[in-house]
Computed example of a mutant assay.
Amino acid sequence: MSEQTGSGGLNEYIQHHLQQNTIEVFGGAFHIDTWAVSLVLGLIFIGWFAFFARKATAGVPSKGQAFVELILEFIDGQVKDSFHGDRRSITPLALTIFMWVVLMNGMDLLPLDLPGWLVKTTAGAEVAHHTYFRWVPTADLNTTLGLSVVVFFLILYHSVKAKGGFGFGKELLTAPFHAHGTGAKIALAPANLGLNVIEYLVKPVSLAMRLFGNMYGGELVFMLIAGLLGGGLLMFVPGVLFNTAWALFHILIVLLQAFIFMILTVVYIAGAYESH
């Protein structure tokens, strides 16, 4: 489904679909689209799993319960392979990250022009032309950075929990370059601290940029294909074929990126319990 690209061509079409509904909060732009879609999808995930948790039976499960159990067993198995401590809090965290990111990524598979079509149908073409709505939260860097910052603080929490405040601070100053003697330890402390700070900061940044880059790139490809669909009858059939092929391939990206974000979070937390 695609609307015509209009007089401005493909460039105007893409720019239109990259616009966010924003309000100013503390001097910065607050992306309403990202916040609203993320919140709704998070509530859907909670309601979905809570519903089947309450209706769970020891006998033959329903298809819905079996599907939820399959997901939970898969996530728990991945956590068990990567994290060898008490995973009672880690598995729910991994499940939440995986399902929430899958749902947010999956919004990219919905028809690109559906919001505009709904507004056009109810309020007219002129209103639709000036209506913006981006419904792929993970194609917004604010979302992926927000998730990664939470993971960063969780890594710090588990590091302090495993080693204590003194032990964690000592590790920052004495690893990875270990030294014998007070003078050598003091001399190497700045280098150790700098390397450890870089290591800790790289983790959330790489998590955020990887997820954002893949989803933003996928979103742009859908926009380019939608431009073909709006380019007349000659391009309609190739556009449909390209759109279908990319959508099928993008399902793999949606799932894979959610899995990578989840498993790296677990690996990073597991690493917090290890000594350098």
Rank of each mutant, 00 (worst) to 15 (best):
T34E: 08
H16A: 11
G181E: 09
W35N: 03
P115F: 10
G59I: 08
Q19R: 14
D113K: 00
V68W: 00
R210V: 06
H276Q: 05
G167Q: 04
K203R: 09
F52R: 01
I198G: 11
L233N: 15
V205Y: 08
L195N: 12
T122V: 14
Y132A: 12
L229T: 02
L207I: 02
E3D: 15
L220P: 05
K163E: 07
V197I: 09
L229Q: 03
L109H: 00
M223E: 05
H130S: 12
G231N: 10
T144R: 03
V68E: 02
G230N: 08
F52W: 08
F83R: 01
G213R: 06
M235H: 09
A36Q: 09
A123S: 10
L145N: 01
P204H: 02
F67E: 04
G64H: 10
M262Y: 10
L145V: 08
K185Q: 11
L229M: 05
L18G: 07
E73N: 15
Y268G: 06
G47H: 03
H84V: 11
F83V: 02
V240N: 07
H84E: 10
I198H: 11
R88Y: 11
I251A: 08
L110S: 10
I97W: 03
L145A: 00
Y216P: 04
Q65N: 08
F45L: 13
T244Q: 11
F133H: 01
Q20H: 13
E126C: 05
W117P: 00
L118P: 03
E274Y: 12
P238V: 13
A162Q: 06
V136K: 01
V68M: 08
V127Y: 06
G106D: 00
G165T: 06
G47K: 08
W48R: 02
T131N: 09
L256G: 13
G146V: 04
V202R: 14
T57I: 13
V197K: 00
F52M: 07
P190M: 02
V119F: 14
L255T: 06
V240S: 11
E73T: 14
E12G: 09
A272K: 09
F242P: 06
K170R: 12
T91C: 09
Q65A: 09
G77H: 01
L156G: 05
A247N: 10
E12N: 10
G28S: 14
I251S: 04
Q4Y: 15
L229R: 00
I14G: 00
K80D: 12
A50R: 13
V237R: 12
H84I: 09
V267Y: 06
K80P: 04
L248P: 02
H129T: 07
F177Q: 07
L110F: 12
A184K: 10
S82W: 10
P176I: 13
V237L: 15
L241H: 07
A247S: 08
Q15E: 07
L112A: 15
T265R: 01
E73A: 12
N196V: 07
A187I: 14
Q19I: 10
V102G: 05
R54K: 13
R134M: 02
R54S: 10
L173A: 12
S159N: 11
V40S: 11
L147Q: 02
V37E: 04
V79P: 03
L241F: 15
A245E: 07
F30L: 04
G239F: 03
T22S: 15
L224D: 02
G167Y: 03
V267A: 13
L255P: 00
